[in-house]
C-alpha cells in the first residue's frame, strides 16, 4: 500500500499562536486512521489545516501524489480530499436533496450524481423520506446523516470526519458507524477524529493519539488494546 496522504512536520494555528507543533501523519490507500485525544489539543485544527482553512505555516503536505500545503480549499476538494466538518454545517434553507446535490458540486456527470444519490439513500433510508424537507427542520441524527451523505456525494479519495458521533444517542451512533463500515468494505480511506473512541476500536486500522498539539503515540488498534497505559489514560479503559 502506498501513502495516499502524508503530512510532515505540519505547524499551524490561529493568529500567531501555533496549535500544532510539527505534526506528521500518513494514511495509506484504503486505510482507516483514527485520531483521538482530549478536547482542545489540536485534532480539529489538524483537519482544518489539511482541508486548507488554516494556512500551513511550516511543513509539507502531500496528497495523492501532489503537494498541497499552499493549495486553496477547492483545489484540495478537487484532488479528492473531502472534509465532513464538526456540527454538520448544513445549508439550512435547502432541502435534503439539494444539500446532497451540493456535495456533488464538482461532479459534472448527471448520471453519476443520480447513482450516488441512490447510494446515499440506500445507506440512510430515512433521508429518502425526508428528501423535500428543509435541513433546518430535521432532527439531530438526520442532520448528521445528511452531513455524512453530502460528503459521500463527492469524488472522495479520502474522507475526513470530525466527531461523527458528537451529541448523538448511542443507538444513532451505532447506525452511523454501521453505515461507515459498509463504506469501508468498498475500500475507501478515512481519517476519523473522535474524542470518545469506543466505537473506533473496531472501525479503525490504526490509532494516533494527539496531546498538546503533538502526536504522542501511533500504532495499530491491536497494539493499542495491548498497551495498558494508553487505554487507561486516553480511552477510559475500553
Amino acid at each position: 500500500m502506498s501513502a495516499l496522504l502524508s503530512a510532515t512536520d505540519v505547524v499551524s494555528g490561529y493568529l500567531n499562536r501555533p496549535v500544532l507543533h510539527g505534526v506528521s501523519i500518513d494514511i495509506a490507500e484504503g486505510e482507516v486512521l483514527a485520531l483521538i485525544g482530549p478536547n482542545g489539543h489540536g485534532k480539529t485544527t489538524l483537519l482544518r489545516t489539511l482541508s486548507g482553512f488554516l494556512p500551513t505555516r511550516n511543513g509539507q503536505f502531500e496528497f495523492a501524489g501532489a503537494r498541497l500545503e499552499h493549495a486553496t480549499v477547492h483545489a484540495r476538494v478537487e484532488a479528492g480530499l473531502v472534509h465532513i466538518p464538526q456540527g454538520d454545517q448544513l445549508f439550512a434553507e435547502m432541502s435534503v436533496e439539494e444539500n446532497l446535490l451540493m456535495g456533488a458540486y464538482l461532479v459534472t456527470d448527471a448520471r453519476e450524481v443520480e447513482r450516488r444519490l441512490d447510494q446515499v439513500y440506500t445507506l440512510f433510508p430515512r433521508l429518502k423520506d425526508r428528501r423535500p424537507q428543509t435541513a433546518s427542520s430535521l432532527s439531530g441524527g438526520e442532520r448528521r446523516m445528511v452531513g455524512i451523505g453530502r460528503g459521500l456525494m463527492a469524488d472522495a479519495k479520502l474522507i475526513m470526519l470530525d466527531e461523527p458521533s458528537l451529541g448523538l444517542a448511542p443507538l444513532l451512533i451505532e447506525q452511523i458507524y454501521d453505515a461507515l463500515s459498509k463504506l469501508r468494505t468498498e475500500g475507501r480511506s478515512f481519517l476519523v477524529v473522535e474524542e470518545n473512541p469506543s466505537r473506533l476500536m473496531t472501525f479503525a486500522d490504526r490509532l494516533c493519539l494527539m496531546d498538546a498539539g503533538n502526536i504522542i503515540w501511533s500504532g495499530s488498534t491491536a497494539e493499542a488494546r495491548k498497551s495498558e497505559d494508553i487505554l487507561k489514560t486516553y480511552l477510559g479503559g475500553h
Partner: peptide, 23 residues
C-alpha cells in the same frame, strides 16, 4: 441550476460551500 445552488449555498454557509469545492 447548479450555478444558482452554489450562490444560495454560499449565502447560507460560506465555509460549508467552500468544503463542497465552491470557489
Amino acid at each position: 441550476t447548479r450555478f444558482g445552488r452554489a450562490i444560495r449555498a454560499t449565502a447560507m454557509n460560506r465555509d460549508a460551500a467552500r468544503l463542497m469545492g465552491v470557489r
